[in-house]
Nucleic acid binder design. Structure first.
Lengths: 232, 232
DNA sequence: CAAAAAGGTTAATGAAAGATTAATAGGATT
DNA sequence: AATCCTATTAATCTTTCATTAACCTTTTTG
């Protein structure tokens, strides 16, 4: 489920304003429609918008000027221009004022939506820095993906590159079968007889390394693959 | 003083490619021009780009497909499309693949530059937020980022520029692996065989400099990278 | 139950990667 | 122009580790 973004649309033309706000509403945006710059500023003061969409031609104020007023009210609020004036000088001016985009009318609604989504997803994902599991715990062992270390009760156990890769794959799928094919294609890139032989060697090495905790075992499922079993 | 951004331009048309790369070069960008998708992928592997500019029509591969390949090589690298095909379906497809923009030919160079600047200023300010400590303490050593000094129990140890850069990177990530790629692209800007050889020399120098505290060590993780380990 | 196939373990090997020291070259400074 | 400083390249030596091989044990199959 995605976050619902809140937009302010500043557009004096009634039919275009209505059309766009309806369309954006349908596309899961929360849209506030302002018909004048005055109105836009008031609403910006009292709402937490994620993006402002500004028409350049407004009855009471130039859109560029409005963008600066809005910046004064909420400097974090990104804005883009929507305009019939596609003069090159205007495009340059728009960006120089800090716009995140500049779209020429006639607007294609679908394109507008994908551009808005592209903008907002970039703006917000960089903030939300997702954390991907950097450690796997298996019995008394801890496999650290940041520094490629395996530790047993704090004691470092040296692993080679391939040993690590294999153990990481098994740990990621602990108590679940990893087929030969899956293992060989992800770690060796190639699924053939010789690499399968090599895999056996590495399984053997890992078993030695994991021997300090009897609850752990790498079990073979005949003709299918291997599984890291963690008991209890 | 602004950072010089590094771009890769993928464009098979010689005259347009030449024109754009010259123009962007004039505008203080470092531009690498690839004429084929193949070339683009190779260069992406060995360079730390800030943005990729992709033509949609390439001799050896579809630009959309190329964007996904590039994403596989460097998921952080933002890309935009440049195209003569302004079919609406293509615009939508471009954004759905993760593009940050989609520009229709004929390209106005000035507009391209302001769009690139708008994009990069937004993208990089959010990333580079990492708090920069002004000092890193490692065992008996103190690395001072303000005056570029390394001291051991007060005694100054002279470091060259590159030695300092490398140690700073390792210190920032102490007890965490720094991959070859990460090191080479941040300090050398380019990830190739010769720079990797150079890296070895610097690691060797740093080891000497850090030899006064046995709790510190720069460990190599075979085929992956280096890590500054600080014990207990 | 016997033969064949698959899996397990240990050791040998050779190519690739890493470490170290020295030589070289280019820029800056005096 | 001479000297110093530094990054890169070269040369050489050492270590690492994936693969291969050899041989043994277990499982499957007919």
């Amino acid at each position: 489920m995605n976050k619902k973004y809140k937009l302010i649309l500043v557009e004096d033309d009634s039919s275009l304003g209505y059309l766009l706000s309806e369309y954006l509403g349908m596309k899961n945006f929360e849209v506030v429609w302002a018909k004048t710059a005055e109105e836009a500023m008031l609403k910006t003061k009292s709402n937490a918008f994620d993006l402002a969409i500004l028409d350049v031609m407004l009855p009471d104020m130039d859109g560029f000027e409005l963008s600066q007023k809005i910046k004064g009210i909420n400097p974090e609020l990104p804005f883009l221009f929507l305009t019939a004036r596609s003069l090159k000088i205007d495009v340059l001016k728009g960006f120089s004022m800090g716009a995140v985009d500049y779209l020429k009318k006639p607007i294609d609604e679908e394109e507008l939506v994908v551009r808005i989504n592209a903008l907002l997803s970039r703006l917000t994902t960089s903030e939300e820095e997702e954390e991907l599991a950097s450690e796997y715990e298996m019995g008394d062992y801890i496999l650290n993906m940041d520094n490629f270390e395996l530790r047993h009760k704090g004691e470092l156990i040296k692993l080679t590159g391939k040993e690590f890769d294999l153990l990481a794959l098994l740990a990621k799928n602990q108590n679940q079968l990893c087929t030969h094919k899956e293992i060989l294609t992800t770690i060796w890139d190639k699924n053939d007889y010789f690499n399968k032989k090599s895999l056996n060697v590495f399984v053997s090495h890992l078993r030695k390394h994991l021997g300090k905790d009897s609850r752990l075992s790498i079990v073979n499922v005949n003709r299918r693959g291997f599984m890291l079993r963690v008991e209890e």
